[in-house]
Simulated assay, not measured.
Amino acid sequence: MTAHDPARPEARPISLHQQILSELQGHILSGRWPPGHRIPFEHELTAQFGCSRMTVNKVLTQLAAAGLIERRRKVGSFVRQPHSQSAVLEIPEIRSEVEALGLPYRFTLLRRRRRRSTQADRAELGLDAPAPVLALTGRHDAGPRPFCLEERLIHLAAVPEAEAQDFSAEPPGAWLVHHVPWSAAEHRIRARSADAGLAATMACPPGTPCLVVERRTWSAGRPVTVVRLTYPGEAHELVARFAPSQS
């Protein structure tokens, strides 16, 4: 069975697999299931959602791949402890990621719009008042294949010179790293399935599992940019290097 909103005839029906994945993710990310909480056993979830054990196993495998749960043989699945907030994370350039694979790199700017920030923009950037923003959508390619979809907002009050850039010679992320010193960054990682629009842009089948990395950066306490990077399938892994606390 699939859920469908009759008020939105253009929306794709949501599969039972996606419903289960979204519900379990919600319990974990909201804190309703804290670190160490035991996830219901597969047979319990099968009975709860009225689905096959294969569907439940696929959901748990995705949650484990996203780093949200830990699966222990013959014991069960548990919500993972969060990584240290003092982790030292780099902001890699996507060009370097592609070239490390031995493939030619290309960036294509698909959409560009300067606008007054919407309420959603301000929520994403953490702004208290309306401000001009630059909304960019671009695609990074590795050889003949799409590699990553970039959806970015730049706070023009913090980086006014970004408005004059066409980003043909240097993609937005690389340009910001090279021209705006950042003092703090936040990463959020989640999984999603490719809808029809994303699948068409990234040349992958609808429903393809994708890794989404959302990153916000600040300079001297002022929000600079928020970006959503979507990698289809197995195109990307996130590696973090940790430093011990200096307390």
Rank of each mutant, 00 (worst) to 15 (best):
F41H: 13
I91A: 13
Y231L: 10
R111K: 12
G197I: 00
V159P: 01
T217S: 10
S219Y: 01
Q81H: 12
A169E: 13
S52F: 04
F242L: 15
A47S: 12
P181W: 00
D5N: 15
S77Q: 01
R115K: 15
C148G: 03
A123C: 00
S22D: 15
A199E: 07
A157Y: 01
P160N: 07
S15D: 11
I20L: 11
T208Y: 09
R241F: 12
T118W: 07
E237H: 14
S30K: 08
E151H: 11
A135S: 10
V79A: 07
R71G: 02
E161G: 05
F49M: 02
Q62A: 15
A7R: 15
L149E: 11
P34Q: 07
P232A: 06
P13R: 06
Y105M: 08
T46D: 01
T55Y: 04
P244A: 14
V227C: 13
L24R: 09
S117I: 08
P9H: 01
L109C: 07
G173H: 01
R113N: 11
M202V: 08
V75Y: 00
K74H: 15
V75G: 00
L176I: 14
L149H: 03
S30W: 06
M202K: 02
L125T: 06
G26D: 11
A185W: 03
A191V: 11
F41Y: 05
H4L: 14
H43N: 12
W182Q: 02
G36W: 12
R190F: 05
S77L: 01
Y231T: 05
P40Q: 12
R152P: 00
C51K: 02
L63T: 05
W33T: 06
V226P: 00
L229S: 15
E70C: 07
E42A: 11
R73S: 10
H155C: 03
P232S: 10
P209W: 10
D166M: 01
Q25F: 01
